[in-house]
Amino acid sequence: MRYLAHVDVTLRPGIADPEGATIAKALPALGFDSVHAVRVGKRFSVELDAKDLHAAESLAASLADRLLANTVIEEAVIHITEA
C-alpha cells in the first residue's frame, strides 16, 4: 500500500523560537491585535510504501526521529493517510 505521511516538526516547548517571536511581534502591526504567540515549524510530505497503516506509522516515526527532527530541540507529529 502507498501512504502519505505528513510529518510536522516543531521546536519542543520551552525551546526559544526567535523566528516565531519575530512573526508574533509583526502581526499586531498589521492589526492582528489578538495574536499573542507564534511558533514556527516545518511540514514534510513523505510518500512511502508499507504493508499496512501500522507499518507506515512506524516507518514514518523512525525516519522522523533519525533525520527529519533533531530530537534534542524538536519533536515530530505524524499524520498518515492512504495515498
Binding site: P18, E19, V72, I73
Partner: peptide
C-alpha cells in the same frame, strides 16, 4: 546539544 538560529535572527 544543538545549535539553533541566532537570537535576533
Amino acid at each position: 546539544g544543538a545549535l539553533q538560529k541566532n537570537r535576533g535572527l
